[in-house]
Design a protein around this nucleic acid. Structure first.
Length: 693
DNA sequence: TTTATAATGACTTGGAAG
DNA sequence: CTTCCAAGTCATTATAAA
């Protein structure tokens, strides 16, 4: 199942490879824009056209809290990417009761703005892969719609051969016979407003130089220069996606809450007059141009001296923005793609004492170390999340493992890493593998009808005393064997809250030290030092399962007998450090980045009481870890051997009923900082190497 | 102000049943 | 094939207590 995992980006890359005869600049940058805008108009409150964070919020609120009774449903569809005007009109026509009908009509209207395409979904599919719309339409006409494989083949052939085909502008872009010209014109005027900022970007102006300088804070020059070798277009898309994410963040949150140092500093340097357009436009243009220069070195060397090419590149960035919107939209009714099938049983490439071990895999070239990297997050994330994570991490297939194969509690996690997978070995002694082994005293009180042998995932909260009391009373009411209904209720709650039997009719949540034991940490690892009991549960619930992670890390023991330099992002209570230590891999230099002070204290005191001989460097926030800082750190001890991180899951996990927003969520978006930092480390280390060689 | 406590579903998946 | 059901999930928020 996992083997048949296919990553669309690979196809894009293949296309670029075929096309790499120095003619890649014939790639159609421009023509899709108009079509896409027609199809997926940006609605006004998306934040691109308003001057600042406060204003963005203001307008969004004005939009959602208006006195119109159906403003909520309008917002719903606007959030899906339709223009407000179109939604309002459709609701007026169809009423607001039947949301399916509304959606259908909206899609119909959107599709009707596509120029005479017989199957817009099919075309969008291939356009989404990176082919130009013209080419796709042509090929579909030639080959028919039936055989998608032959369409893809032909497209690949065309993009390899067709190096001199004139790029045809869509002549109908302003001639669209849609009922929504008003909204479309508005959208165009939004785009036009970007031209006002063009001179800011030009390096000939004072501000331009200042702003240009800012890019260095995130992406070093070295990075751009090796971008071509690394992964071609994939890299460009990567940069664009980071940008898109920032746009998303900016439109969602107050300007004060923007932590990205590039944007933040840009705000400061540019003064309070800076607008969202200026900031995002700058970052987009600068980064895309930078990447494009690395990609197409034969083209104009000066990134901004040619107005039209600059505009093309920039438009391509917005094209991507639109494309991403479209993807989101497609997900609503086309769920063929983007589904990662979790293996059953969830054993990844293999776990100790189980058959079906896989000891060989071929990693994409861009993924190869040094450094080794290891990324972790919840397996059961919303649809598409793991596809995105994998794409951003060099298309490495995630390894999904349930920690119930290592200890007495389940923990379904995905791990994306470039570690070798042969000759793994487990930590010894084995931890208790069943509830009874882990908590022998509970056996006496464990009823026969509670058939659990493993606990469910250890989370950050525990059951209330009222619940356990309720269970006790329900059981005391029945004499002897409780009624089936009672059994069912009790068992349901026990599974939900991981309750164990501690007395007659008495269930209880686990104690913090019991959680420590299950997760493989030393007893009292999180105890004392000023942390509250509530926060212990929270920190532990957010941590690695040591035996699982150590099993994956075990292959490093032979490779680094003299010790390891570790960059630990989102290090929490130090799961990675503890795992390596328990494997007997010496820790030479550890840079741990962790936002919570209590967690940093826990790691620090563990470091001191385990008599570590290396050095531990604390950093508060991943977003203060920029290129300069990393360059300095890497210079100090010659590079990192391993970069580990499990970025926040709270916007991905099913437990979150309030803000399960996916990778764009406030906290889970920090995943992209993991990517950014890993990128920087790779580039700096490669740069250093080539200078030495 | 910090900490503890209690109340609060949605979404996805796999598999059985029809 | 579709429909239904069971199971599971690194959580957030409001409020009371310390």
């Amino acid at each position: 199942m996992l083997r048949s995992f296919s990553w669309p980006i690979l196809q894009v890359k293949r296309m670029v490879d075929n096309n790499s005869g120095g003619e890649a600049d014939n790639f159609d940058w421009d023509t899709e824009d108009d079509l896409e805008i027609d199809n997926y108009a940006i609605s006004a409150p998306s934040g691109l056209s308003t001057p600042c964070g406060e204003a963005v919020l203001g307008s969004a609120e004005a939009g959602s809290s208006g006195n119109s009774p159906n403003s909520k449903i309008i917002d719903h569809f606007v959030g899906m990417g339709f223009s407000r005007e179109m939604v309002a009109k459709v609701i007026e026509e169809k009423g607001e009761e039947n949301s399916d009908l509304i959606l259908e009509t909206l899609l119909e209207y959107s599709a009707s703005t596509l120029p005479s395409s017989s199957n817009s979904k099919l075309i969008d599919h291939f356009v989404g892969m990176g082919f130009s719309e013209e080419m796709v339409v042509k090929v579909v006409q030639e080959n028919g719609e039936g055989n998608t494989d032959s369409i893809l083949e032909t497209l690949l052939t065309y993009s390899a051969l067709e190096t001199t085909a004139p790029v045809q502008q869509n002549p109908d872009s302003g001639n669209c016979s849609s009922d929504y010209e008003g909204s479309l014109l508005n959208d165009f005027s939004d785009f036009d407003s970007f031209s006002e900022t063009e001179e800011i970007i030009s390096p000939s102006s004072e501000e331009g130089r200042k702003l240009l300088h800012l890019t260095k804070m995130g992406y070093s020059e070295a990075e751009a220069s090796v971008a071509m070798e690394r992964c071609g277009l994939c890299y460009l898309i990567h940069i664009c996606n980071i940008f898109l994410l920032m746009v998303g963040r900016m439109s969602k949150f107050h300007l004060d809450s923007i932590k990205d140092p590039r944007l933040f500093n840009c705000c400061i340097e540019n003064g309070p007059d800076s607008t969202i357009e200026e900031l995002t436009d700058f970052i987009c243009a600068a980064q895309i141009a930078k990447a494009a220069d690395a990609l197409f070195p034969l083209e104009d060397k000066k990134p901004f001296s040619n107005g039209s090419s600059h505009k093309k590149r920039r438009n391509w960035g917005y094209d991507l923005l639109l494309r991403k919107k479209k993807l989101k939209l497609e997900k609503r009714f086309d769920e063929d793609d983007d589904v990662v099938h979790l293996p059953n049983p969830m054993i990844g490439f293999g776990v100790p004492n189980e058959p079906d071990q896989i000891t060989h895999r071929v990693l994409p070239e861009a993924a190869l170390g040094p450094p080794y990297f290891y990324y972790e997050n919840v397996a059961l994330a919303p649809k598409g999340v793991w596809t995105t994570i994998s794409r951003f991490l060099y298309d490495v297939e995630p390894e999904f493992v349930d920690s119930k194969f290592f200890c007495a509690a389940a923990r379904k996690r995905g791990y994306v890493h470039n570690l070798p997978i042969d000759n793994r070995f487990p930590l010894l002694p084995f931890p208790p593998r069943t509830i009874h082994e882990a908590f022998p005293l509970t056996r006496k009180w464990w009823p026969s009808w509670d058939t659990r042998t493993k606990l469910n995932c250890l989370q950050t909260c525990i059951a209330s005393a009222r619940l356990t009391d309720k269970i006790r009373k329900a059981l005391e009411d029945s004499d002897g064997e409780p009624l089936l209904g009672i059994q069912k209720f009790v068992l349901e709650q026990c599974r939900k809250w991981n309750l164990v039997w501690v007395g007659r009719n008495k269930v209880a949540p686990l104690e913090p030290d019991e959680v420590e034991m299950l997760l493989g940490f030393p007893r009292n690892h999180t105890r004392g030092g000023g942390i509250s009991r509530t926060d212990r549960y929270k920190s532990l619930g957010n941590s690695f399962q040591i035996d699982t992670v150590a099993y994956h890390f075990s292959v490093l023991k032979d490779k680094f007998p003299g010790g390891i330099n570790l960059l630990s992002l989102f290090s929490g209570i130090g799961g990675a450090e503890v795992a390596l230590h328990r494997l007997g891999i010496p820790l030479k230099n550890v840079v741990a980045v962790e936002i919570a002070e209590v967690n940093r204290n826990i790691l620090r005191s563990w470091w001191e009481q385990t008599n570590q001989r290396g050095t531990l460097t604390d950093i508060q926030d991943v977003q203060e870890l920029n290129g300069d800082r990393l360059e300095q750190l890497i210079k100090n001890f010659g590079g990192f051997d391993l970069v580990v991180g499990g970025s926040p899951c709270n916007n991905l996990t099913g437990s979150n009923r309030y803000h399960r927003d996916g990778l764009e969520g406030k906290d889970s978006a920090l995943f992209f900082d993991f990517c950014r930092i890993l990128d920087l480390v790779k580039c700096i280390m490669n740069g250093t190497k080539s200078m030495i060689v």
